[in-house]
Design a protein around this nucleic acid. Structure first.
Length: 315
DNA sequence: TGACAGGGGGTGT
DNA sequence: ACACCCCCTGTC
C-alpha cells in the first residue's frame, strides 16, 4: 500500500443516501470528475484532492484518501455535509404545497448542491454546451491528463488494481486514470486553441482559450468575482466568451454557492412544461417562474427536478 | 461485428 | 433561426 492511500473510514453525517441518490449527487451533472469503480464505489477528484467514496448498507458513507493531507473535513465540505445549512435550504423549499417537488425530494435522499472550486466549475461548464455528462467527463479527463499537474505517483494505484478481481477491463481503464489536477486558468492561457481542440472540445476550445486569455488580462478576476453577490457575479460571468445565462447560473450555483441561481436548460424547459404546465414558455420566462415559485433555494429545487427527469427519461 | 446517421444539458451572430 | 464541432449512442 502506498503511503498516500489510506484505509476506509466512515464519514460521519446525518445525511442518508441510496446508491442512486449518491450517484445523482456526485455524477448527476454538478461535477464531472467522479468515476464509478464498482456498484457502490466511486473515485473523485477536485482541487489537489483525490478520494474514493462508497455507499454501504445502513445508508452510510465510507471513504479513503488517495492523496496526502486529505481530511474528512475536506470531503464533508465538498459534499456539503459539514453543517446544517443544506437541510435549511431544503426546509425553505415549497414542498409542503408542491406535490411534484415533494416526490422528487423523497426519491433522492441526501441530494444537495456540492461546493466545488470556482475555477474548475467554470471550466467544466464551458465544456458542457450541447454535451452529455459522459462526454464532458472525457473532455475534463483529457484536459487534466494533458494540461494539468500530476498529483500522486502512479505506484499508489497498482496495489488497488491487484486487489480488484471482480472488475472488468473497462473498470481497469478507470483505475488506471492518473491522479491529475485540472489545469489552472493560468496554465490554460499558455495552451493554444489547437491543443485544446485535441481534447475533444470542438468549438468550445475557442471559448475556453478566450476565457483563459480574458482572465490572464484581468489579474484577480477569479478571486474578485468569488466575493460578489449573485447578480453581479452572474453579470461578470456572462462577460466571458462562451458563457451565457445558463452556464453562468450553473457556475454561480455549483462553484460559488449562490443557491438562488436557477439554471434553465432544455431539460428544465421540458420538466417545467410537463410538471408545472408551462407549455411553450421561453427560458427567460421559466427562469422567472422558478425564482418566484421556489424562492431563495431555487437551485436545489432545480437539482431535484433535474434528477427526476434524468431518472424517468423525460416520461 | 462494424459502419453509419442522427442528435446533443448552449452561445454568438 | 442557424452555424459552430465532433463524440456518443442506437440501429441496421
Amino acid at each position: 500500500m502506498s503511503s498516500f492511500t489510506g484505509s476506509w473510514q466512515t464519514l460521519e453525517t446525518s445525511a442518508r443516501f441510496t446508491d442512486s441518490s449518491l450517484a445523482e449527487l456526485i455524477d448527476g451533472g454538478q461535477a464531472f470528475r467522479w468515476n464509478q469503480l464498482s456498484d457502490n464505489s466511486w473515485r473523485g477528484q477536485w482541487a489537489n484532492i483525490a478520494v474514493e467514496l462508497k455507499h454501504v448498507p445502513d445508508s452510510k458513507l465510507q471513504w479513503r484518501p488517495l492523496t496526502p493531507d486529505v481530511t474528512a473535513a475536506n470531503l464533508r465540505q465538498y459534499l456539503a455535509l459539514d453543517n446544517e445549512e443544506p437541510d435549511l435550504h431544503l426546509d425553505v423549499l415549497p414542498w409542503r404545497s408542491d406535490p411534484h417537488l415533494r416526490k422528487c425530494i423523497s426519491a433522492f435522499p441526501g441530494l444537495r448542491i456540492l461546493r466545488q472550486p470556482f475555477g474548475e466549475t467554470l471550466l467544466g461548464f464551458l465544456c458542457s454546451a450541447t454535451k452529455q455528462i459522459v462526454q464532458i467527463k472525457q473532455m475534463m479527463a483529457l484536459l487534466a491528463e494533458r494540461h494539468g499537474t500530476p498529483l500522486a505517483p502512479s505506484e499508489s494505484l497498482k496495489n488497488t488494481k491487484s486487489n480488484c478481481h471482480l472488475l472488468s477491463d473497462n473498470d481497469f481503464d478507470l483505475i488506471d486514470d492518473k491522479l491529475v489536477m485540472l489545469p489552472t486558468w493560468e496554465q490554460l492561457a499558455r495552451t493554444t486553441e489547437g491543443e485544446l481542440r485535441r481534447c475533444q472540445l470542438g468549438f468550445r476550445a475557442r471559448y475556453i482559450k478566450g476565457t483563459a486569455d480574458y482572465i490572464a488580462a484581468h489579474p484577480g478576476w477569479l478571486e474578485h468575482t468569488a466575493t460578489l453577490p449573485y447578480p453581479e457575479a452572474r453579470e461578470a460571468l456572462c462577460n466571458l466568451p462562451g458563457v451565457g445565462e445558463k452556464i453562468a447560473d450553473c457556475v454561480a450555483l455549483f462553484g460559488l454557492g449562490h443557491q438562488q441561481a436557477f439554471p434553465v436548460d432544455t431539460w428544465m424547459i421540458k420538466s417545467m412544461a410537463r410538471r408545472y404546465g408551462l407549455e411553450g414558455w421561453s427560458p427567460t420566462q421559466v427562469a422567472h417562474f422558478g425564482r418566484v415559485h421556489f424562492g431563495p433555494s431555487a437551485g436545489l429545487a432545480q437539482q431535484y427536478l433535474f434528477a427526476w427527469e434524468r431518472a424517468h427519461g423525460g416520461r
